[in-house]
């Protein structure tokens, strides 16, 4: 009973929040609704018994990724509304609706086939984080290390990309908008 209530509550709230993210004209609204949606998605994970995944979702997505976005938005002018000419809605909704139907068919195909076997069933008497650790550090050790290396490369790449010319101001006020910024230091 509670599972159903929680599921439908989380579903409606995440869908609504992500719709706000996708349709909003303001970056700040989009980002905060995205962060709230991420928190609710971790609720899905807790509901599914994937405790460790839910905590990782909270720590990595809500903690790190959204903080990174918030930090990146200090470089951009976040308070102004975005002016953009969007693609016509008819094409968009037709395309994404078609792909969504296709996705449901693809997802449903193995269920109809009933041919999936569990390769790593969780062991009896272990909590979720313990069994995750057992599988992660035995069967998935190499991908884990590769992922660590990839994160290191991404960190160095991010620092080098964003760190260049850090002393220069990026956000231009409206009256100095027509003066090109690069002439300032020459």
């Amino acid at each position: 009973m509670f599972e159903q209530i929680a599921f439908y509550l989380f579903s409606v709230l995440t869908a609504g929040l992500f719709l706000v993210t996708v349709l909003s004209r303001n970056v700040l609204y989009a980002m905060s609704s995205l962060a709230a949606g991420m928190v609710l998605i971790s609720g899905f994970f807790f509901l599914l018994g994937a405790d460790f995944l839910g905590v990782v979702q909270l720590v990595v997505y809500v903690g790190a990724v959204m903080a990174l976005y918030a930090f990146g938005m200090m470089f951009f002018d976040a308070t102004r509304d975005i002016k953009e000419n969007n693609t016509s809605s008819k094409v968009v909704f037709l395309l994404s609706g078609g792909i969504a139907v296709l996705l449901v068919v693809i997802f449903a195909a193995p269920i109809l086939g009933n041919s999936i076997e569990a390769t790593y069933p969780p062991q009896e008497g272990l909590t979720n984080p313990e069994s995750i650790g057992l599988v992660l550090f035995t069967k998935y050790l190499v991908p884990f290390e590769v992922a660590a290396l990839m994160l290191l490369v991404a960190m160095v790449g991010g620092m080098i990309l964003a760190g260049k010319k850090m002393d220069q101001s990026l956000t231009v006020t409206d009256e100095e908008m027509n003066i090109p910024q690069k002439d300032g230091d020459k």
Binding site: Y69, G72, A154
Partner: peptide, 9 residues
């Protein structure tokens, strides 16, 4: 996470 780091840069 790594996509966001590089992408934001």
């Amino acid at each position: 996470a790594s996509e966001v780091a590089v992408g934001l840069g």
